[in-house]
Write a protein that binds this DNA or RNA. Sequence first.
DNA 1: CCAAAAGTGTTCCGTCTACACCCATGG
DNA 2: CCATGGGTGTAGACGGAACACTTTTGG
Lengths: 225, 225
Amino acid sequence: MNGFYNEHSKVLVSVDCIVFGFDEDKLKILIGKRKMDPGRDEWSLYGGFVGAEESLDDAANRVLLKLTGLKKIYMKQVGAYGKIDRDPGERVISIAYCALINVKDYDDSLREQHDLEWTSIKNLPKLYSDHNIMVNNAIKMLRRRINTEPLSFNLLPELFTLTQLQHVYEAVLDTEIDKRNFRKKIKDIDFIEKTELIDKITSKRGAALYRFNKRVYEDDPTFKL
Amino acid sequence: MNGFYNEHSKVLVSVDCIVFGFDEDKLKILIGKRKMDPGRDEWSLYGGFVGAEESLDDAANRVLLKLTGLKKIYMKQVGAYGKIDRDPGERVISIAYCALINVKDYDDSLREQHDLEWTSIKNLPKLYSDHNIMVNNAIKMLRRRINTEPLSFNLLPELFTLTQLQHVYEAVLDTEIDKRNFRKKIKDIDFIEKTELIDKITSKRGAALYRFNKRVYEDDPTFKL
DNA sequence: CCAAAAGTGTTCCGTCTACACCCATGG
DNA sequence: CCATGGGTGTAGACGGAACACTTTTGG
């Protein structure tokens, strides 16, 4: 019954994850030195092969769980990369996934265990194979979407100050934003809720903490920052 | 040397093409009835398997050439689709590609030969497997990009009237656009050039023909319609 | 002569941008 | 008491939206 399919060649499929975090007011990604050939010791994204019994999204989730210990990470496919010689060992097609996490939720011992580094996207080294291209496309996607989708909250703790939120936008878009104009716009967005809580850690005066209200967002998921 | 890779399973990879055309003031795509099992006689996108010696883009170009007889078609990857059971026959991961062609360039005998139909995106039937999802994502991508990338010209002849161009935008975005405002914006876009030629086919009075100047566009590829 | 599509400007309104000072507090 | 980051309003510029009539000509 599958005669038609048998003529065609099969290939290995992997997923590669671009894990974004926001730290020290910079947008960073997790990269590590490859511990295997080919490409041993080159800087690389973290990835894994897609198993016979899992979908692409499942594979990406599995890799991300192993890497971060976190479930339900925000994750989105960036694209498929299929040049014949992109992997020097054997033909491998790779599906790139972009993930957004809050660095504070992240167990740093896992980072050390996998020998990964948070690296600012402004100082990225040459990465293995076509990984730089994947990262660039992931960044482009982030920039295109951050003004119309609630992505920024994935990079922040559940409670955050407006200054932190503004810094996320500045880091992602690589621009400076006027504080008053930014806060004016935020006031018009219903799903960014001010809480009664005050953050006294980063400033002496204390800053109001805000939260993203998912219910309200889903009720009317249109906004433009 | 490839010991590490050998543990992992290989899968078939295909490309599926969403070929957009603009005809009768409607945005349409090419679909046909499957001529093979599984899914015989279901409406389907046109696709093909990725060969051992070709990249994903090469495979898409090959499929598009076979389908349309046209080279250098505008083409862009939409995404990778990898649910385990998405193909009832055997596991197949598919990479969807969106293509834009000018229906007038297209040899209609090829369409008949492949038994394909131009179908308005507003009247799409249920398609094979996850093809409806692919189409929806392709449309979303078109809508997101048509205001900032010179996509519309791929759907038109080399020479076109402003009314035709406006109708492309209206069909893609599914909105009505004010004629005067539209033409005002076009005047500000340097790479849309008025020619001396006049189209007397679609109107009695005759309408000025315009052309997309790629050189000028590449010189300053920023615009916003 | 009339139907059908081409072509053309102005006004209004809302949105974005630029810009500077006072406040509260911990050390 | 002062250094640090938090918080606030206004005016001018700009861009988008609404809106109607004249022109040309093939049939």
